[in-house]
Amino acid sequence: NKASVVANQLIPINTALTLIMMKAEVVTPMGIPAEEIPKLVGMQVNRAVPLGTTLMPDMVKNYE
């Protein structure tokens, strides 16, 4: 099973992601793959992301 990106803390709306906000975890359903973490740094979330939430592509602005 591949790990996904999971919020390590509450991430407020429009916050630019940093490494300490994210962790890799095997979850179902899968979200953004953990190997994308370096690419996510500096990208903004378009909603508040609660602690423990799996990051999905539609939660990150301009994620492709």
Rank of each mutant, 00 (worst) to 15 (best):
A3V: 06
I37Y: 05
E64D: 14
I13P: 08
L51P: 06
P12V: 08
P57H: 10
T15Y: 09
V60I: 04
K2P: 10
T53N: 08
M22I: 10
I11E: 00
L55I: 12
I11H: 01
M56T: 12
D58G: 06
A16E: 10
L40S: 01
G42T: 04
K23D: 04
L19P: 07
T28L: 06
E25M: 11
G31I: 02
P12R: 09
R47M: 08
P12T: 14
V45K: 00
P57D: 08
S4V: 03
L51F: 14
M43E: 07
G31K: 01
P29Q: 09
E25R: 06
N14F: 12
P50N: 09
G42R: 14
E64S: 06
M22K: 00
V5G: 04
Q9A: 05
M30Q: 15
V6F: 03
A7G: 13
M22F: 11
N14W: 06
D58W: 08
E35N: 10
G31Y: 02
V49S: 02
L19M: 08
T15L: 09
N46C: 02
V6A: 05
I37F: 06
P57G: 10
R47K: 09
I20F: 06
A7V: 15
N62T: 05
E36V: 07
G42I: 01
L40F: 02
A24T: 10
M43T: 10
A48Q: 15
M43G: 06
L55T: 01
T18K: 12
Q9V: 09
G52H: 12
L17E: 00
N62L: 11
V41P: 03
V45G: 01
A7E: 01
K23A: 11
P50E: 13
I20P: 12
V27I: 04
N8Q: 15
L10E: 07
K23L: 11
M22N: 00
Q44A: 09
Q44L: 14
M21E: 02
G52D: 04
N62V: 05
P57I: 04
V60Q: 01
L19A: 09
I32Q: 01
Q9S: 09
M43S: 08
M22E: 00
E25C: 03
M30K: 11
M59V: 14
A48W: 13
Y63T: 06
L55P: 01
L17V: 05
T54C: 02
P29W: 03
L10W: 14
D58Y: 13
V27S: 11
M59A: 10
E35K: 15
Y63P: 03
L51H: 08
A7S: 06
N8I: 08
V41D: 13
M43K: 14
V49T: 06
G52T: 03
N62Y: 12
S4L: 01
N1F: 07
V6M: 13
M21T: 08
K2I: 15
A3N: 07
E64G: 13
A24S: 07
A7I: 05
G52A: 06
K2T: 13
K61F: 10
Q44E: 15
L17K: 00
D58R: 13
K39I: 08
N62Q: 13
L17D: 00
L51Y: 15
P29H: 13
L51I: 09
V60P: 01
P50V: 06
A7P: 01
L55E: 01
I32C: 02
G31P: 01
T54P: 14
T28F: 15
P50C: 03
A16W: 05
G52W: 14
M59R: 06
K61S: 14
T15P: 00
V27G: 08
E25L: 08
S4E: 00
T18W: 03
S4T: 11
E36F: 06
L55W: 01
L51D: 12
P29I: 05
T18L: 06
V5Q: 00
P29Y: 04
P33H: 04
I37L: 12
M59E: 03
A24D: 05
T15R: 05
A3T: 15
L40I: 05
E35Q: 12
P57N: 08
A16Q: 12
N46W: 11
V5H: 00
P29F: 15
M21A: 06
T53C: 03
I32E: 00
Y63E: 04
M43C: 02
M59Y: 09
N8P: 07
Q44V: 13
R47V: 11
V45W: 01
N8W: 11
T28E: 06
P50R: 12
P33I: 11
V45S: 06
P50M: 11
K23H: 12
N46I: 06
P33M: 09
L19T: 12
